[in-house]
Structure formats: structure tokens, C-alpha cells
Design a protein around this nucleic acid. Structure first.
Lengths: 290, 290
DNA sequence: GATGATATCTGACTAAAGTCAGACATCATG
DNA sequence: CATGATGTCTGACTTTAGTCAGATATCATC
């Protein structure tokens, strides 16, 4: 009853019935679930027919028929793909967008209802983030993004907030050497965000300099995503990007108040070096030749 | 993307696909999901056909046919109910138990695999408990149980551990007036456990005395279940039980290090009274006439 | 023991989901 | 431009799920 496996299974039972309830509310719009799922996949930006089929795990025959019924209802239009006329691209018509919005409203209402029923919403959301991150860990994708994109700014905000909590003296961005966004764009550097579905759960910056090396900056992993070895994946991706950009030497600075970071660097081929800048926050400096 | 509703919806998507994967592994045993579900419901102790039908939300015709296919496979036997021959009772045959065990093994393997893939298992399990409790809050049932049952002892263990964390000086059960189990059994008193599915998530004891009042003891709500107003429900149930037992006056002691408890008592008709025992831990005393 | 209620079962459906083989157009390649 | 590969579509299925109207047996009650 109380062993870990039972707890996981209790969780499974609880969410199974919640998921079933949401499916039921979708049926309320008088369309079989299969068609509703295709409509929603298109609404969420999946346009390539093969991609949708793959995402929903449908047979090509079935997929084709579902698309046909949506076309007959006037909700979807399909056209040949611009680069390859064998492939088909689906998009919503005006009516289709309206119908999609109705499904979105159902989903949102369900989520809002759930939140409204529960006090302690923040603790609950943090728990849901954690579970969702663990469930989708195989599907975390690392995307290179502009350091001023919404996703990147979210990560950086969380990162600064965490430093503020972790450092005894707090953390004030303006005192730190805040890297210029332009140094973290190709071809000088890059900025990588780890996305779990639509939620950014980690980031790392590669900042180009004119001093014969590039710096790793802003490595952050969301609390909900710790234990998934995401820090390592982000560092690997940053190194790979550096190699692509012809960078041979990497440096970084960190603080001993972040022991898990130091640990990661030490076990992945970085070696400690003397201070190489005058930023007030770091007290540990590393270098890696790649 | 980052608003609460989106986070809930991301969670929904994550668990939807996890649930789908488990359903798929069930299909691997060559039996449609409907039949597998009935078999598993019986295996988990639901024997009454009407109860299973209700639990799974099936039409009586469909239920009947699913039972027939399981009987034809030799997995299930149905007999008339001892008290009412209209009702049917299903039980697994020897082969049925073996088949049920195979499904259990699949579920367990899935859960174990999930746990094995994730470090930080305890944090993750706590998060899953919290989410599951929130999802099933309408289905929390309060059961009177023996204070020495496994469920009760689990609750008490968690309760003591929490006091140890909350009290500056720690908490040692042996120093406290640990109520005798026999005082928390009918007809002197009772012990109530809040069960969410198979997990105990809260408890309260009603301890009979020979001093003209009964005491409320061991009110505990699992961290994962806070915010569900469970404390209030437990107290209401304890009062109702006291009334049933002809008890007119209730007392309890608590500690100001547990502010949410004091808050609950004050808002539910309890009034503070002078110390009425010499237990070293409490510093607040309440009374309520019912 | 007649009567209405209850629990299950059967027959006769429909709808939805899924499978599979081939048809057809298009693509990449030599 | 012939050839094999790829992506989608159609037709012809099967299986699963679900619905509904009686039929049948049993129960509680008068």
C-alpha cells in the first residue's frame, strides 16, 4: 500500500480517471474522439499529415479518413506540401479555428476548475511540473533560441531568482557581468533552451569573446527537472555548438554555493583554473579544451 | 505557456500519453481493454457484478457480454449472490488469477521502470501523492479503523515524524501521553483514517476517558493532502462519532508551533481553556460542547 | 401467491476504431 | 526517363465499444 510502486500505481489510477473525464468533455461537441484529436493536433500547429499521424499513432488509412471527415465538415483544408507534393499539409479553415477554440475553451475550463478547487495552487503546480517533466523526460528537446525570446527570458528570470535564494548575500543582476544577447547568437555563440512540451525547463548560454575562448554562461535546470541529467545534456549541446563554431577553448565561472554545478563540471572534463575575470559573484573558475 | 492553466494542460498531455502507453502494454496480452479492465477489477477484489459495472461505467448489456467472454476463456466464474440470487458474484478461477497476476506484473514493471529512470524518487513520489490527492479529493473516504491497523500506524508514524520536525525541541512519543489503543475503539472512542484510494492521507482519534469528556487526539493531514479541507472533514467526522457515542463534551490539546491546527479549532466552535493535563508538549488547550 | 421492483441476460442494432492490400502520384537517383 | 522508394488515398474488411428494448429470474411486500 505504501511502497513506492503502489504510490505510482495510485497516481496512475487517479490520472486515468481524470484523463477519461476530459475525453468525455471533448465528446460533448458531437464529434468522435479520433476526429477531435486530429483537429486539435492541427490547431496546435502540427500541419504535416505524416507528423500528425505519427504523433497520434494512427494508421495512414484511418488518418486519411479522419481528415476527410474534417474536410467535409468544412473545418480543415489540405494542400500539397510546397517542397514535396506527395506530402500533404493540413490547416484549419475559419470555421475550423472557431471549433478548435471551443475545444481549447473546454480544456482551459477544465484546468481552471481544477486550479479553483485546490488551494495551495503553487505547491500543486510545482508538483505537476515535476511529474510532467519526469514523464516526458525522453521527449525533452534542446532548441537553440534567441537569448531575448520569451522562453529564454523566462529561464534567465528563474535563474536569477534562484541565485538570489542560494547566495547568502543575494544576487543583483546589474552587478554581475550580464552577457550581451548579441554574444550569445550565432555565429559568436548561442543560447540553448531545454523544452519539455511547451515548458522551458533549463537553459545554457555559449558566449563568444574576442579573447581566444568562449564562455559557458547561465546554466540552469528547473527544480522540477532535477535528477533527469539535464544539466549534462545542456552542457553537451553547448560544447557541440562550440565545436561547430570552431571554438577550441571554453571557460566558465561559478560559485561554491552551487555544489551540484561544480560537481558536474569536475566529472565532465573541466579543470579548475585561476580567476580570469573580476565579476563579484563567482569564486570558482574552470576551463575545458574541446 | 507559463501561466497556471498552461502548466496544468502540459501535465494533462504528459499523463495522457503515459496512460495510453500503459493501456497499450495491457493490449499486449491479446485481450481487448474492456475485458482486461473487468478482469482486473475482479482481481482487485470487486466481486459484485453491479459494483464492477458501476466502477467501470459500463452498460449492463456490455458488462454481461464481457463477463461471458472471460468465462469462455476460463478466467472467471460467476455465481448467484448468497443473499440475493438476482445479483451475480464474479471470482477468478485459478487460470484467472494467473492472468491477473500477469497484468499486475505489467503494472508493477511500468511503475518500477518509471521509478528506476528517475533519481530523486522521494521528491517525485511526494509530488505524485500530492497530485493524486488533489485529483481524487472528491473520492476521499473516511473510514473508522482500528488504531493498531496498518493504515493507522502509518498515519501515526508520519504524525510523530512531523511533530519531530516542527517542535524546536523535537518530539519523543514516550514522553507524551500516548493514548491507549483501547480508548480509541468503540464504544469508548474511535479512530478515523482518511483514505484516498489505497493511501492513508489523514487521521484523527477520539479517545474516551472516565472524566466526563472525550479527547480529540492525533489529528494529522498528509503534506500531500493539505489544502483539501481534510482537517475539517476529519474533525466533523470525529464529532459525529462522539455524538453517536453519547459524548457531550470534547477537549483537546495542541501546540502553538502548529498554527494551522489552532486556527482550525478556533474557527469551528472550540474555545480555549486552561491546561487540563501535564503532558509536556502541548501549550494550548481547547474545549467544545457538542 | 399476486404485484411491482430489481438484477442480469440476450438479441439486434450502430458507431468508432483499426487493419490491410493495393492504387496512384510524386520524388530521388542513376 | 526508367526504376524503386515514399506519402497518401480508397475499398473492403474486422474488432471493439456502446445502446436499447425486451425476456427472465428473483426479491420484497401486501
Amino acid at each position: 500500500m505504501l511502497d513506492p510502486v503502489s504510490r505510482v500505481r495510485r497516481f496512475n489510477r487517479a490520472v486515468t480517471s481524470a484523463v477519461g473525464a476530459l475525453d468525455n468533455s471533448f465528446l460533448g461537441r458531437g464529434r468522435p474522439l479520433g476526429a477531435a484529436r486530429v483537429l486539435n493536433a492541427i490547431g496546435h500547429g502540427r500541419s504535416d499529415v505524416a507528423e500528425i499521424r505519427d504523433y497520434l499513432g494512427l494508421d495512414s488509412g484511418l488518418m486519411s479518413r479522419l481528415l476527410r471527415t474534417l474536410e467535409d465538415e468544412g473545418l480543415v483544408e489540405t494542400t500539397a506540401h510546397a517542397d514535396d507534393a506527395r506530402r500533404r499539409v493540413a490547416k484549419l479553415t475559419r470555421t475550423g479555428r472557431r471549433e478548435f477554440a471551443a475545444y481549447e475553451a473546454l480544456s482551459n475550463a477544465q484546468a481552471e476548475g481544477f486550479l479553483a478547487r485546490n488551494a495551495q495552487a503553487e505547491a500543486l503546480l510545482a508538483a505537476m511540473d515535476m511529474v510532467a517533466s519526469a514523464l516526458t523526460r525522453e521527449r525533452v528537446v534542446l532548441d537553440e533560441m534567441d537569448p531575448q525570446s520569451e522562453e529564454a527570458r523566462y529561464c534567465l528570470g528563474e535563474y536569477y531568482a534562484e541565485l538570489g535564494r542560494r547566495f547568502k548575500q543575494g544576487f543583483d543582476v546589474s552587478l554581475s557581468r550580464d552577457p550581451d544577447a548579441k554574444d550569445m547568437r550565432r555565429p559568436r555563440g548561442t543560447f540553448i533552451v531545454a523544452m519539455s512540451d511547451t515548458l522551458p525547463i533549463g537553459c545554457v548560454g555559449l558566449k563568444g569573446t574576442d579573447r581566444g575562448y568562449a564562455e559557458i554562461k547561465r546554466l540552469w535546470v528547473a527544480p522540477a527537472a532535477r535528477g533527469l541529467r539535464l544539466g549534462r545534456r545542456l552542457m553537451d549541446a553547448a560544447e557541440a555548438a562550440a565545436r561547430e563554431l570552431g571554438i577550441a577553448l571554453l571557460r566558465l565561472d561559478t560559485n561554491s554555493a552551487l555544489p551540484e554545478a561544480g560537481q558536474l563540471y569536475r566529472t565532465t572534463g573541466w579543470r579548475e583554473i585561476p580567476r580570469f575575470n573580476d565579476d563579484p559573484y563567482p569564486d570558482l573558475f574552470f576551463e575545458k579544451r574541446i
